[in-house]
Write a protein that binds this DNA or RNA. Structure first.
Length: 284
DNA sequence: AACTGTCCCTGCAAGC
DNA sequence: TGCTTGCAGGGACAGT
């Protein structure tokens, strides 16, 4: 399930394969994928338009367009972006197809497919001036943890006057943007903190450890190309799987021995309404 | 204002 | 074997 590391891997794929190219034609299959506006709005907003950049904010992919508008793509649970040769066999649930003109230094055209079985994902073209009204979720997004402005002090400020537990806070996109269920559990395990701990009670030492764990886990996962699980089949733009699932220490390991301390057993419970795995011995 | 619970949707796996 | 059921989860939304 795409979280920050997977989305960052996809972003790099877009940078390589899509930036600098012009959209010749747009196909929209299932309208739910473009529900924020409409089929016509997406086709009008992208046809004949050049894609200038590939950026990321949390789990949101954002491209500047030469029309002055922006393209936002969100993979949510099961979304995938695939670059393919024109006319290739499309997988089931291919909801949006962008036909891309060849890059300046080549004569190879491509298709960019937005594939999404569970249809939670979305694709939208929006006017940056209307960000606050049209894209309130994006406008209210918290700090990106891989941005330099994310420091232990940031975390300390954000923890003030918070009632929820650590896991709920890590999952809250208004707080820190990009962490989902898998990486929240991995981060808390590395930081040796229980998911149900209250942030207001954390010592400065623990808080600094948490800050370091957020950055370390996310960077390692980015370097591994993200995590590919059985159920979501996450792959990058070229169809490559990630490998960070091999480094998961708690996620999906309920009932097994802790790989870090060797003493504890991984408990599987529900915290903040999500399946949560943590070590009974080394997380306090 | 901040938090919790429910819903959306499909594919897969477990259980009968 | 073949069906049903439950589960996975990001974020919008309604309710507290």
């Amino acid at each position: 399930m795409p979280e920050l590391p997977e989305v960052e891997t996809v972003r790099r794929g877009l940078q390589q394969n899509v930036v600098g190219r012009t959209v010749k034609r747009v196909e929209v299959g299932r309208e739910r994928t473009v529900r924020r506006t409409s089929r016509e709005a997406l086709i009008d907003g992208l046809t004949g338009v050049k894609i200038l950049s590939a950026n990321r904010r949390g789990k949101y992919l954002l491209c500047d367009l030469d029309s002055g508008q922006k393209l936002m793509m969100h993979l949510r649970m099961s979304g995938r972006l695939i670059i393919a040769k024109p006319g290739s066999q499309r997988p089931p649930h291919t909801h949006v197809v962008l036909h891309l003109a060849s890059a300046a230094n080549s004569n190879v055209e491509s298709e960019l497919w937005f594939v999404d079985p569970r249809t939670f994902g979305e694709v939208v073209v929006f006017d940056p001036d209307l960000l606050k009204t049209q894209m309130p979720d994006l406008a209210n997004l918290g700090v990106d943890p891989l941005n330099d402005e994310f420091t232990p002090e940031t975390l300390r400020e954000l923890f003030k006057n918070r009632r929820g537990n650590l896991k709920a806070l890590l999952l809250n996109q208004h707080f820190v943007a990009g962490i989902g269920n898998i990486y929240a559990d991995e981060i808390l395990h590395l930081a040796k903190l229980r998911p149900d701990r209250l942030p207001s009670r954390l010592t400065n030492v623990a808080l600094t450890r948490l800050h370091g764990a957020i950055i370390e886990v996310l960077n390692k996962a980015v370097n591994a190309g993200g995590s590919t699980l059985k159920d979501t089949q996450y792959v990058d733009l070229d169809g490559q799987t990630g490998s960070f699932q091999d480094e998961h220490r708690v996620y999906g390991r309920g009932g097994l021995a802790c790989l870090s301390c060797g003493k504890g057993r991984i408990l599987m419970t529900v915290v903040a309404g999500r399946t949560t795995c943590y070590c009974s011995a080394c997380q306090h």
